[in-house]
Design a protein around this nucleic acid. Sequence first.
DNA 1: TCTGGGGTCCTATTCCTA
DNA 2: TCTGTAGGAATAGGACCC
Length: 422
Amino acid sequence: VAGAAPSASPERAILHVDMDAFFASVEALEHPELRNKPLIVGGDGARGVVASCSYEARFYGVRSAMPSSKAKRLCPHAVFVSGSYGLYETYSKRMHDIFKDFTPLIEGISLDEAFLDVTGAQRLFGSGEQIGQRIRERVRDELGLTVSVGVATTKHVAKLASEAAKPKASRQGPIPGPGVFVVTEADAVPFLHGLPVRALWGVGPAAAQRLESIGVQTVRQLANMAPSVIASVLGKASAQHLHDLAWNRDDRDVVVERAAKSIGHEQTYPRDLYDRAALHDQLVRLIDAVTVRMRADQVVGRTVQLKVRFATFRTITRSRSLPKPTANSSAILKIADDLLNAIDIAEGVRLLGVSMSNLEDAAFTEQLQFLDGRPVSTDLDDAIDLIRQRFGDGSVVPAPLVGSTSPGRFQRGERQWGPNAP
DNA sequence: TCTGGGGTCCTATTCCTA
DNA sequence: TCTGTAGGAATAGGACCC
């Protein structure tokens, strides 16, 4: 209507919801005897790392991704739990079910964190802050867990805001934080400029050190630096990106579902491997696990990547692309074997990994063919999938693994935090 | 004092082809 | 037929995230 006042559209509201000490909190919930103790979820073995830890453990300096051996030194009386991926998945799903009551625009970042676009939900449920409070209450009441919520007009400030909402560690456990932390559009730049560059999403140890070399330690200094100067140490793309973030220029949307770009598995062994036959058997195992997932997701892949970490921790990758994409175990194994055979393994192999990329929808893909034109059959893989469905994962295993000490089937999330053996 | 496993994205180099 | 070159794809490595 001419002359009518435009209805005030609500300000963009992005929530970042982050579970507090997720894995450790779930374990404490399921095992009451572990409550209020320094608790570490992760790999117990010599090559394990910390996946998550309670606030009581954090007080001693224990952090996620830290080698377990170091964590034990810092906090010798901590209880170690190896963790159960499936359990965390269940809790994560229940959390998402709560989110769905407020908005369909949910972008899961990991099991324990997600972005929610609640711009359009504000008329119905109140401001972003109010929605954040309600989500917190419901997760607490229905799941028995605490989450921290950041509210802002952009994704990356929402992410930083949830960090500001989090509890602090003490000997007695978490000291509650604000729980919900709001950064308005007007406050965003001052909020950002008070932070160290390391706080920005995408600035890790390497970038922080490079920025330091041109005298940049804070987001404010980064913001006031010419992008061309930043580019001299970080490259053009990330320089422009970080400079934009420093001024709260972030127009990235909450993306509900994105297709995976690669599927892979890797494993660190309790002892380094020096034997080609043993490595071949491990390839069989890894590829079996990868292709099972590919077929379950109905995708095929064109590029095979092999990853080898040597005893010295030197890591290399070798890849080769097929003329046509596939999810066929033997076709992939052939390539992976070729790649492996071209590598000198005298140093000893600590980790082996296989991943498939250049993924395509299996339904729209022409079948991989042999040179004479016959299609490479996936009948065998399909039959194996069926038998496992009916009789269990252990009912059929690749021949090289029969009678070996390795478990036949490689499970997603299995020994995710390192080998358990000493 | 030793560094997991799942990924994504970016950059530099190499190789191929027009 | 040889040479130079521009651009794209493939490859390798590394940084970063949870």
